[in-house]
Write a protein that binds this DNA or RNA. Structure first.
Lengths: 152, 152
DNA sequence: GGTGTTTGCTTGCTGCGTCAAGCAAATATT
DNA sequence: AATATTTGCTTGACGCAGCAAGCAAACACC
């Protein structure tokens, strides 16, 4: 925490910004997640794990890497991979170089699922997010958002 | 869901934007929440309920209003108010005009808690959000965010 | 090379929020 | 006015994610 005393109160504009963002934070993830599950696809958290895996070298990642990529705790990732493994979309492979380590590997079925699922995901993201942003603002916005989380 | 077939793929800029936003979505609420609980205050969800109540006429709101204001389900709000009531920060009062309805009323203790808690909340919000936004972008950003959630 | 520490992941427990079902008061229908 | 429907909220069951504790493998040190 910072100083805590003598913090400058929010201006009206700041207040509006914070309210809008917290509303977005509250509403959007649920909306996209619902779109996906209603379309018969995986929940967003599991889908994102697959996406990260699909982009990785050999479609394989250490559990800790994957957790970091998804901004989830390691234990959370353990359970997500467990669910994905049950569905046969991912396989857990003990790490050769380090016997403690586990790798999550995207299976062929996982890749296939991703091929089927991405249009639904993309459509949802377009509808909820991108359709509301004018192109000229896109980069500014991205920069601001990135700065908010670079500390982590 | 929208059409689902023939959705336009994302440009690199769009992709970056979506990733940045989803990272923010994932990380920021937890960060602020942790700041508040570490500062010995209520979790963010309960704090926000108090804030909304404090701004209401007679510091009193119907459960359903409050749930809508906080973007939570009614059942979720039932539980939050139950927790707040246990701490004596809120009181539940049957609605006079409509015997089914329940009002949540902010108690004096609740108001007092709010007076103590807001600096911590404000500091956290400044640190995580506002410090990263230059004034000139604030309004643009607010507009975009507002448009994203006006549908709900 | 044996003991102590660190690292990488998993598991038990807990809290939160959702959905679906339940219940009671209010309103509509006849 | 008696019954059926709707409305407003609560409760039960569930799933998800986090923390803290646990467990093995790896490394470090003597």
């Amino acid at each position: 925490m910072t100083t805590q005393e003598g913090v400058q109160p929010m201006s009206a504009a700041e207040e509006a910004f914070v309210r809008a963002l917290s509303r977005v934070l509250q509403v959007l993830p649920r909306a996209v997640d619902q779109d996906m599950t209603r379309a018969g696809q995986l929940p967003l958290s599991e889908y994102m794990a697959l996406v990260h895996l699909s982009e990785a070298q050999d479609r394989l990642m250490r559990m800790s890497e994957l957790a970091a990529a998804c901004d989830l705790s390691l234990s959370g990732m353990t359970r997500i991979v467990a669910r994905l493994e049950q569905r046969g979309l991912v396989q857990r492979v003990r790490c050769e170089a380090d016997g403690r380590g586990a790798n999550a590997v995207l299976t062929e079925a996982g890749l296939q699922h991703l091929r089927e699922a991405w249009p639904a995901h993309l459509a949802s993201v377009r509808r909820h997010l991108l359709d509301h942003v004018e192109g000229e603002h896109l980069e500014t916005l991205t920069q601001v958002l990135q700065r908010m989380v670079t500390a982590y």
